[in-house]
């Protein structure tokens, strides 16, 4: 089997033993069957069991293995090894803007706090009918591009507005979720949801920098969803 050596520069920090973080140079042999960055990371961990990172489904649906890869946020399991330039080390860092727990593992508390702040659940106070609530295929279509979010945080942690105000700005992932419920014909809380975002920071800190769109591993467009919420704010102000 053909093997190849990959060079890495990896952010390491174990608060139990390290005074401060450092970048470690390390290499690993991979096989032709190792297609994705995650395959290489698993091999690295077999070599040095102390390298800490999250991973689970390895197929881009669970959102565990978001990293900063050569300066850009992405999922290790969806990043092709073949996409890396030859002869240059692959630089891996934890997602920017969130506190580091250890190595490539960040504390996502603030990210989820913002997600939870938009009331990410259907609100419909009518007594539930016997059968399903009806929704036309066209109405359902409105949720495409919104419900597929995997909460990996690639978007919010690539957003300068979120870096500066993670406690005040909901961030692209949370706002995408907010619009997912606003756009759902079964949800009755649109005006409450808009009230919840009517604030100089929560929604309006989005300056359409569009890093979120650029990095989303699922090809979603939070900026567009945010734009629609802003439009609705304007509409109801008139």
């Amino acid at each position: 089997m053909t093997t190849r050596t990959l060079q890495f520069k990896i952010y390491r920090y174990d608060p139990d033993t390290d005074q401060k973080p450092y970048m470690q140079d390390i290499s690993v042999e991979i096989d032709a069957t190792d297609r994705k960055l995650l395959d290489a990371l698993v091999k690295l961990k077999a070599k040095d069991d102390a390298i800490a990172f999250r991973r689970s489904c390895r197929e881009g649906v669970c959102g565990s293995d978001a990293l900063n890869i050569n300066g850009r946020n992405g999922l290790a399991c969806l990043t092709d090894i073949a996409s890396f330039p030859e002869g240059k080390p692959i630089v891996l860092r934890p997602l920017p803007g969130l506190p580091v727990i250890r190595d490539l593992i960040v504390d996502m508390t603030q990210f989820f706090k913002q997600y939870h702040s938009i009331k990410p659940y259907l609100i419909n106070n009518d007594p539930p009918p016997e059968r399903e609530r009806l929704q036309s295929p066209e109405e359902r279509e409105e949720l495409n591009g919104l419900y597929e979010c995997i909460l990996c945080a690639c978007c919010s942690t690539s957003c300068p507005s979120f870096w500066w105000n993670p406690d005040k700005f909901v961030g692209p992932a949370g706002l995408l979720a907010a619009y997912r419920f606003i756009a759902d014909t079964r949800d009755q809380a649109t005006s409450e949801r808009l009230d919840n975002l009517e604030d100089p920071y929560r929604l309006f800190r989005c300056h359409t920098i569009m890093n979120c769109v650029d990095v989303c591993p699922k090809g979603l467009n939070p900026t567009k969803a945010i734009g629609k919420i802003k439009d609705m704010m304007v509409q109801r102000a008139i």
């Binding site: 659940y121 259907l122 419909n124 539930p128 016997e130 059968r131 399903e132 609530r133 009806l134 929704q135 036309s136 295929p137 109405e139 359902r140 949720l143 419900y147 419920f181 759902d184 079964r186 949800d187």
Partner: peptide, 19 residues
């Protein structure tokens, strides 16, 4: 399954609006 729909699960729909 109907409970899930009431929780907000985005099922695909038939032309008459059902799951």
């Amino acid at each position: 399954v109907i409970e899930l729909e009431h929780y907000g699960m985005p099922f695909d729909r038939t032309d008459n609006g059902r799951i």
